[in-house]
């Protein structure tokens, strides 16, 4: 029997096949699914913001909320549990702009996606599929056994990547 492992906002986790990692309702946040298929280990991070250093964060000590620190922690966790960095590939989803406001032109969803791509590339991890941007929320199911990332939206669109 496969288990469903829920990853909350600003959090991450790993799973072994045949378990499924799930994160609900990504808005501007980005879900990063990592997989080492040879070793049947997958990971999922749900990040909120691009970089820990530029956040000026005075309250939280949660480094899992940022793309840079969150992704690195996820990689390390996978490697500690038997994954090999060179095998790891990535699929990403999220980074929407939920509200079209006139005033706030800086688009955090877009910046999150950019940061995720930079951090993955710096770690030589290839992105093999993505469903990012636009203006709707996404729930992500990541099946560690098949490597499939299912992306579901409020309007019941379901795509499998």
């Amino acid at each position: 029997m496969s288990k469903m492992i829920n990853v909350g906002i600003s959090d991450l986790n790993i799973a072994k096949a045949p378990d499924v990692l799930v994160t609900y309702a990504l808005g501007s946040c980005v879900g990063i699914c990592l997989l080492d298929k040879n070793n049947d280990i997958g990971g999922l991070a749900h990040i909120m913001l691009p970089y820990s250093k530029e956040a000026g964060d005075t309250v939280s000590t949660n480094l899992r909320r940022y793309a840079d620190t969150g992704i690195v922690e996820l990689i390390q966790m996978m490697v500690r549990n038997g994954a090999v960095l060179a095998n790891i590939i990535a699929k990403i989803a999220g980074g929407a702009q939920m509200f079209q406001t006139q005033i706030n032109t800086f688009n955090i969803g877009e910046r999150n996606v950019e940061a995720v791509k930079k951090v993955l590339s710096a770690n030589r991890i290839k992105i093999v599929a993505e469903d990012t941007g636009q203006n709707f929320g996404r729930t992500v199911f990541f099946d560690v056994k098949t490597g499939e990332m299912k992306v579901k939206t409020a309007s019941s669109r379901l795509i499998v990547l």
């Binding site: 609900y24 309702a25 501007s28 909120m48 913001l49 005075t58 929407a96 939920m98 509200f99 929320g137």
Partner: peptide, 19 residues
């Protein structure tokens, strides 16, 4: 915006994460 509650609420959560 009409969408999932979690995705909508992430907007203030992200913007004010630092405080």
């Amino acid at each position: 915006c009409v969408d999932m509650a979690g995705a909508i609420l992430s907007v203030p959560a992200i913007e004010f994460a630092s405080i």
